[in-house]
Amino acid sequence: MNLKLDNLKTSLAGGAAGLTLTLALGVAAVPAAAADFPEAGSTITIVIPNSPGGSTDTSARLFADALSKNLPNQPNVVVQNRTGGNGMIALNDIMRADPDGYTLGILEATSVVLPPVLEGRDYDPLSLEWIAQINNPLYLAVASKASGLTSVEQMAGTGETFVQASTGGRLDGSTLGARMTGMAMGFDVNPIPHDGASEALLAVIRGDVDWMQGTFPTIYAQIDDVVPLFTYTSERIPNLPDVPSVAELGHEELLKLNGLQLVLGATPGTPDDVMATLNAAAEAAFMDETFQEGMVKANQNAEWLDAGETRELIQAKIDLFSAARDELLEE
């Protein structure tokens, strides 16, 4: 590892962030006490690892507006898109910010867990101050019409290999989820990577691959051109009453391994009183009507987990992926 360069980058980034913050606050950068958190006219930045336009960005922007309304003194809450490095650039920004509650992150839970578990990255996903889960888009598996598959029974227990349109390499979070599903259900997965879920879906519609997994908003508009296999839910969903849920198939544990749970967190070491303010405001923001309506309109699935439950989700992901580590890294 090139620690020197990393440190230099951090200090530059930290310096720049500190400067902006000082300018924005118009005061010296003294650690804020909860009594004056957040200060009137201050700016809270929500860092996200995604580019503008996707479902994470949409959810984060809707949530940012609601959070601003529900925090004391109504600070500005802005979303900053820090793409790249497989999410590491955004995560570093959050990990290395001043622990004052002015830098938050909305991240995809699996992408935070995998680097330390599989690549040996040196950080603890549980060290972030987790606040909540704000979105858990419905997630489902579909087959291509050309594959001849009509239900998951034709795959489960066969030990055969099915070509999957994936949205990343073999060790990408979403691909790993699919591979774990294959392991649990008894079939092999051969992932073909694509740039994003809609390109993967196109490959399924063309019939170039056997199956894929993705979020309901992406797939539903094209649902007539694919064969739904099962949903990652504990019960069947109203839009697809004939499609079994993964729990019904006897694999409830797969719920924690698949899907794009969006979790909100703050820099490690943020003081408890600041965290208390943030936790309360986040819950109020989540219940905010505008946020809820916006999420429904954008086909998202606002699903609340509080701070403790979010930590449990992260812990469960760490345990499940660690247990399967050797098998996943094989080949």
């Binding site: 580019s51 503008p52 336009g53 996707g54 949409t58 908003p217 309109k297 954008a298």
Partner: peptide, 13 residues
């Protein structure tokens, strides 16, 4: 991509 995001916010898929 951004345009699609904007459309989705308005409930247009």
């Amino acid at each position: 991509a951004i345009l699609i995001g904007a459309l989705m916010v308005f409930g247009i898929t």
